[in-house]
Write a protein that binds this DNA or RNA. Sequence first.
DNA 1: ATGAAAGCGCTAACAG
DNA 2: CTGTTAGCGCTTTCAT
Lengths: 343, 343
Amino acid sequence: MKPTTDRSRPVTIEDVAAAAGVSVATVSRALRDLPHVAPATRLRVRAVAERLGYHADPHASRLAAGRTFTVAMALPLVGKWYFSQVVAGAERVLSADGYDVLLYAVEDRTVLDRFLADARYRKRSDALVIVDIRLSTAEFDALAGEGAALVTVGPVDSRFCSVSIDNVAAAGLAADHLLGLGHRRLGLIGGQADSPIHFEVPDERRRGFLAACGRAGVEVRPDHIVDGHFTVEGGAAAVDRILDTDSPPTAVFAASDEMAMGAIHRARQRGMAVPGDLSVLGFDDHDLAAVFGLSTIRQPVRRHGERVAELVLGLLSGEVDDPVHVVHPVEVVARATTAPPAA
Amino acid sequence: MKPTTDRSRPVTIEDVAAAAGVSVATVSRALRDLPHVAPATRLRVRAVAERLGYHADPHASRLAAGRTFTVAMALPLVGKWYFSQVVAGAERVLSADGYDVLLYAVEDRTVLDRFLADARYRKRSDALVIVDIRLSTAEFDALAGEGAALVTVGPVDSRFCSVSIDNVAAAGLAADHLLGLGHRRLGLIGGQADSPIHFEVPDERRRGFLAACGRAGVEVRPDHIVDGHFTVEGGAAAVDRILDTDSPPTAVFAASDEMAMGAIHRARQRGMAVPGDLSVLGFDDHDLAAVFGLSTIRQPVRRHGERVAELVLGLLSGEVDDPVHVVHPVEVVARATTAPPAA
DNA sequence: ATGAAAGCGCTAACAG
DNA sequence: CTGTTAGCGCTTTCAT
């Protein structure tokens, strides 16, 4: 058992300097691949550092240099599929480049205000990624003023890089799919999310859906538009309300797969055949959508995370300068929960 | 617009000290509720700090004091339901106590080795939580030697706090449920996970399942035990192999809901009725298990996360000293995918 | 009860 | 190419 690494007392840069017979400055340079270090010296220092198991204390170096090699991610719900995918994607590319990720769940206005106010993340990270959190113009202004390295997934502000989809167009696709199947009485499950902070998404999807219907000369009754809170239960409750109206629709579009699955479940519990009596179209293409046979609008969620991370890295390395706005494609995936209307 | 907060230059403790007419030491004490500060002074300092929007630089204080107020969480797959729930639960209670969470995806041996070796997390966090990552005894020894504040979800080592379930007993419950329904030919989808690092879980669940079957005098054929890799697709492929044997089972137990759903989907694609021709029982009680009508073994996943966070907090505050081993209950949730065998 | 001063471990000029 | 020396912002004795 060779004592390659002695973990009793943290190895400092001085230990390495002493062992390598150079100054701490040289060690610092050598290890960070900065110029002005003789190749031989660099090699020797690297070897010593390796042998001693030395790793620069991130706090000390941040304090001295200002960089943390950490990026903060703020998102409403860590446990929801969509967000977990974005995080997973981002973590992968960030960690590959040596960055750590700090996770903040910002589920409502109160938390957001506090988050923005004390800006813990600010001193702890080199960049901030916010996922589907709606910031006010004033808040964007403030961030821009601070010169924050901010990248968004979802909302887009002209001053910051962003990754998003065209929700209006996507919802139009949804309407077209249903319309194309021959449906003329349509319902919509979406509406305002529970907490007002995330999501302009529901609005956009509603607008896009209604606009496409309008173009086809189809009107959607207001009582066929119900909020499903983006949850399974919400989707179930929403479809209940929609089906309880007189002359219920023959097809509904749910703004998330979770809501769609809840709606399908409830419709079937009520004895309706899906898609026979009711077609249901979801949104996202959740991991379980396929086994559920769910027709949906697919967006590359994990890719959102990877892309946003790439933007962050570009920003931090200076390769990306002007705000880049990435818009990912979406597509209709017709499976087994949408079909032409019975009649 | 009163300039309550000037974000141009970070506010330092000196600014506060100057503005409050005291020394930095006093500010430091006052703000951290340390003794030896006159009540009036404390109030004044607090007010000034508030007005200036001052927040101690976490890196500077960690450097000086050694604490980071951050806990690191390492888990194999950030994007899987189970892990995202654990993280969500932990984040909630940790952030409530002012702790930030650092996320590390450790998906295989290589990454784990590197993770353990350079111990980035070590200097960046006050505690480490590992979720379903199997550490060798030597690795636990090393961590114990370092005096690491480690809490596990899943694996249990006598020297560290842990949160777990009794997988053997849980799988026994699964077998008993199926056996109780009258099944005598049983299959098992689980086996080794893809990456060898996480999960003693599959082994334990297999052992528990087989043991319970054994007690009932029922033997499970080796070709009815197939690895499903803990994914939807894996579950589907696994059930294919099981059903392709001669004399296939009338019921299968999948060690995760995702695999169970994949299996059900495939069985139905093959024209089998579930549960008519084949009963399928899952494990976890995934958010979507209910809408899928999936019978399953429920474990309180989110609670795992909350509990592990509580243990971390206890450890860090010194309230918890000796290793605490929390074992969460599990229960059978019989829904619509398990029923007595047809014959 | 409060202040002065010595670091924490590292980086970044500035010399040489 | 390499070493010296200030700090970075905060905590913590040790005085007072």
